[in-house]
Nucleic acid binder design. Structure first.
Length: 235
DNA sequence: GCGACAG
DNA sequence: ATCTTGTCGC
């Protein structure tokens, strides 16, 4: 562990103390008309192209927004929040300051929440910085776990760390690789599980994350479409 | 010592 | 994440 990683680990420890994971039945509870903000990033040389997709919890799509910032930190597994967090935060702030847009009730981040070696993934970082309910959804697990998820859609397997359940492997589509969900901030474990399953339509990953991924990719390749709004340089 | 390692 | 061709399937 070099100097920067030691410093990062300290910062994660301090910020992790601010994370609030409500108990069963407490914290954020999804409602049909809640506004969900899905976030993802694509990288192109030293630029980070961030996209945010807004939809109602019931599935109604509202719009997609994309911006760009300079990348300031390297990618180090386990310290993902310091690379990806600041660009995400910049876009969220931009959207929060736009009076024409609805305020998101929940953030959905491409990455982990508390299912993390130091219980502090990028979804926790963004949750603490914004003060908004946040969950993390990732395509690979960072923690080792035992057992196997059932093959049927909706099958779930606990992912534990140091004796505590911190997230789940979730089979969102029958016969398709599971995704990994964990709360980031202000969301209970069972709520994160429910939300992750209900946000999925016909793909492995929730639409709100797929659209963010697609738009960020298009922006990074300088392609213009009619379905997203370029909010320019952030930060 | 060796391998694994969110995006 | 990104670099990359063809190929299988709905």
């Amino acid at each position: 562990m070099n100097d920067i990683e030691t410093q990062w680990a300290n910062e994660q420890r301090l910020m992790a103390a601010q994370v609030q994971i409500p108990t069963l039945g407490q914290g954020y509870q999804p409602q049909d008309n809640d506004v969900i903000l899905g976030l993802d990033i694509q990288y192109e040389s030293d630029k980070a192209y961030i996209a945010g997709d807004l939809q109602h919890y019931n599935g109604h799509h509202l719009g997609t927004y994309s911006g760009v910032t300079a990348v300031m930190a390297p990618y180090v597994p386990g310290f993902f929040c310091f690379r990806e967090g600041p660009p995400l935060f910049a876009l969220v702030n931009h959207l929060l300051n736009d009076a024409t847009l609805p305020r998101p009730d929940l953030l959905v981040v491409d990455g982990h929440g508390i299912a993390h070696p130091r219980t502090f993934g990028v979804a926790c970082w963004l949750g603490v910085k914004t003060g908004l309910p946040t969950i993390g959804i990732a395509k690979k697990s960072l923690l080792k776990f035992s057992g196997q998820v059932g093959n049927e859609q909706g099958s779930i397997l606990d992912i534990a760390h140091k004796g505590q359940v911190v997230g789940y492997a979730l089979r969102t589509q029958t016969g398709i690789k599971p995704e990994y969900v964990s709360p980031g901030h202000l969301v209970a474990l069972d709520t994160a599980k429910t939300v992750a399953l209900n946000l999925v339509s016909e793909y492995r990953i929730p639409d709100v994350l797929r659209r963010a991924d697609q738009m960020a990719r298009l922006h990074s390749k300088d392609e213009q479409t009619n379905d997203w709004i370029n909010v320019g340089t952030l930060g």
